[in-house]
Nucleic acid binder design. Sequence first.
DNA 1: ATGTAATTGAGACAAATTCTCATTTCGGCT
DNA 2: AGCCGAAATGAGAATTTGTCTCAATTACAT
Lengths: 141, 141
Amino acid sequence: MDTSKNISEALKRAGYKLTAPRKAIVQVLEKGGDHLSSSEVLTLGRQIYPLLSRATVYRTLELLTTLGLIRPILLRDAAQRYVTGEGGHHHLLCRECGAVFEFERCGAEQLAAELAERFDFQIRGHLLEFYGICRNCQTDD
Amino acid sequence: MDTSKNISEALKRAGYKLTAPRKAIVQVLEKGGDHLSSSEVLTLGRQIYPLLSRATVYRTLELLTTLGLIRPILLRDAAQRYVTGEGGHHHLLCRECGAVFEFERCGAEQLAAELAERFDFQIRGHLLEFYGICRNCQTDD
DNA sequence: ATGTAATTGAGACAAATTCTCATTTCGGCT
DNA sequence: AGCCGAAATGAGAATTTGTCTCAATTACAT
């Protein structure tokens, strides 16, 4: 699990080429805030590197995910969305209005250790999301 | 959080009509095992109710999700997949080969209670997934 | 500078999801 | 038992998302 936000460094360290398209995508992910979808990454990435192709975005997002540098999350969309950093924050999602709340500490470390042992699995990160009804929507209907 | 598996009952209780298409979909979800995608639900559902339309499957899955009766999970697919029951099991996903391991107890109850209070949020369920490298893939490459 | 394997772009292709709207159906109410 | 209105549905078009192929380009070790 990489604690620094420097995705480029990690990519290089893992033996991958640091190409212009990848730099653009990484820049978008690091600066562009969280919860970006593939097509948002494409649009924003083209502002930096206009030739950027859809396929490259998908390929790069998959690569970064496999390396554990970003992780997918489940929002309301059809589209897959990503956040940077494995240790990062987690979400509460309102199923009524789609609002997203964030929290930091999740205390899954101990469980992670148990599971790693039990399944002989090298855990690199995790996703924790809570679903329910937010304050506003509780008063509606 | 509904502990019984009786989704139909819960639907009715929430004031929704219990139509033939919905019954078919619910039957598929309850008997058909977990990790079903929309198109699998469609195919299986048509064995019960041949007229079943794709749109209805999507609409119903969304409704059941909003009600907290099923929940989406993140596997490797492009397609969204669902599991029944909020309290259900959770996953370890191998980022190398896509293998899925399941575990039951996750101990998120206390955190859930804290967050519910802090955000004034009515929590109905949650998703917890761990990512990493499975036993087999650790020895490869 | 050069060679080579990795990476890319473009666009066809495929799959997943959403939308529209005319028609049907559930279930409360006589 | 039949009626009514709102809710739900089917069909298929439209849109969005994701995958694939292959010739051309590029990073980077030497």
